Simulated scan of single mutants.
Amino acid sequence: MAVPGMPIGSPGMEAPDGRRDPYDVLAFDKRGRTRVFAHHT
Rank of each mutant, 00 (worst) to 15 (best):
M1Q: 09
M1V: 11
A2W: 11
A2Q: 13
A2C: 11
A2M: 13
A2P: 04
V3R: 14
V3M: 13
V3G: 06
V3T: 15
V3S: 07
V3L: 12
P4W: 03
P4S: 06
P4L: 07
P4Q: 07
P4F: 04
G5C: 04
G5N: 08
G5R: 11
G5W: 02
M6P: 05
M6K: 15
M6N: 14
M6D: 07
P7H: 05
I8P: 02
I8Q: 08
I8F: 03
I8V: 14
G9Q: 05
G9N: 05
G9V: 07
S10V: 00
S10R: 10
P11Q: 00
P11C: 02
P11G: 01
P11L: 02
G12S: 07
G12D: 01
G12W: 04
M13C: 10
E14R: 08
E14I: 06
P16G: 01
P16A: 05
P16E: 03
P16V: 03
P16K: 09
D17V: 06
D17M: 04
D17W: 09
D17E: 08
G18F: 04
R19Q: 11
R19K: 13
R20H: 13
R20M: 12
R20K: 15
R20L: 07
R20I: 12
R20V: 13
D21M: 11
P22N: 05
P22H: 07
Y23E: 01
Y23L: 03
Y23P: 07
D24P: 06
D24H: 13
D24S: 14
V25D: 10
V25G: 07
V25L: 10
L26K: 12
L26M: 15
L26W: 14
L26P: 01
A27Q: 15
A27C: 14
A27M: 15
F28A: 13
F28I: 13
D29H: 12
K30I: 03
K30P: 02
K30Y: 06
K30C: 06
R31V: 02
R31H: 03
R31T: 03
R31I: 00
R31W: 01
G32Q: 01
G32V: 00
G32F: 00
G32D: 00
G32C: 00
G32W: 00
G32S: 00
R33A: 04
R33D: 05
R33L: 08
R33I: 02
T34F: 05
T34Y: 07
T34D: 02
T34K: 11
T34R: 12
T34I: 13
R35Q: 14
R35Y: 07
V36M: 05
V36N: 04
V36F: 08
V36K: 03
F37E: 15
F37R: 15
F37G: 06
A38S: 12
A38V: 10
A38R: 15
A38D: 12
H39V: 09
H39N: 12
H39S: 15
H39W: 09
H40P: 00
H40I: 13
H40W: 09
T41Y: 04
T41C: 04
T41A: 11
T41W: 03
